[in-house]
Write a protein that binds this DNA or RNA. Structure first.
Lengths: 159, 159
DNA sequence: GACTATCGTCTGCTCAGCAGATTAAATATC
DNA sequence: GATATTTAATCTGCTGAGCAGACGATAGTC
């Protein structure tokens, strides 16, 4: 679908793949509120344990005002909760409930399958290469999420 | 930025890269209406010469109702025109004006530079690999744009 | 000639991104 | 210690894009 002489449309490839990814992941995550978005948020909460709501939003590139009602829905669904941060009473720490962790663990597998199917044009080696390169490129190109990287680990404030 | 144990967040990488791509391309395409969108459309018109407005929209994954006012703006800017399709009076053939072709040609170079900068974390070989794999994956995963592929060439109706 | 499908347009709905204001709390300055 | 500045989260309102539905015009089919 690319083009005869066009200069390898990077934007098109990214957009097309992302569109398909969202669609397929949303299909396997119908139990979650917000579809693929809900999965990304909950997955980030479980796997990365970002320190605060703001850090979570920055990490996923989601607007903080959107994050507010997004978390409202995850809360209402009993998958994540907001806890007051003991070290900063303005901030909220987002934690997954037991059920939330359970759901994410289950979905990780099906999402992985969906992604493999999405990349079925490539053989396993190429898939791994694509993933690696994408991740490196994205990490490098992302606008300085320094704050996220710095505080990112767990709670671990600077010594 | 990825995660300690998360399963290689494909969606995150794609979204982050695409976001950055749009931003940088939009910055170099400020002269175009609709920023990066305008570039994609005009570029597709010039390089691929899709037969009709509908084919153009399908190719770029843009809704046809959006395409309508998008082309309105490109028309108003004197970069592209709608021509009646002689073989089907319902359809419109989209053609770039001389100025439109000129603008795209100029932008292709600067966009290529912006993309290289976007992928500056990767060395040239890796960039090429990423582009190739992305394009193959996207072409393979895209929902059957058959109609686009079939009619895609130029005008060339089936013999 | 009647039926159905397609192309482009228009209308209206919804959701996400974004800017701005607000409240509460932390931090810096005097 | 009082005050000013900054930051976290929420709320409000605006815009832009995707999407569904309807429409008029045309094409292909029986």
């Amino acid at each position: 679908m690319p083009s005869p002489d066009a200069p390898s449309p990077l934007g098109w490839s990214l957009a097309a793949l992302l569109r398909e990814w969202k669609q397929r992941v949303a299909a396997t995550c119908s139990e979650l509120p917000q579809g693929s978005r809900g999965y990304e948020v909950l997955s980030a909460v479980v796997h990365d344990e970002p320190p605060t709501q703001a850090a979570l939003a920055a990490r996923l590139g989601i607007d903080r005002t959107v994050m507010t009602y997004l978390l409202d829905e995850l809360d209402a669904a009993g998958l994540a909760r907001r806890q007051p941060d003991p070290s900063d009473r303005r901030a909220r720490r987002i934690v997954a409930t037991a059920r939330g962790r359970e759901v994410v663990t289950g979905l990780d597998a099906t999402v992985a399958r969906a992604e493999d199917e999405l990349l079925s044009t490539l053989d396993p080696d190429e898939r791994a290469t694509l993933r690696t390169l994408l991740e490196r490129a994205a990490s490098g190109a992302a606008p300085h999420d320094d704050r996220c990287a710095v505080v990112g680990g767990t709670i671990a404030p600077a010594p």
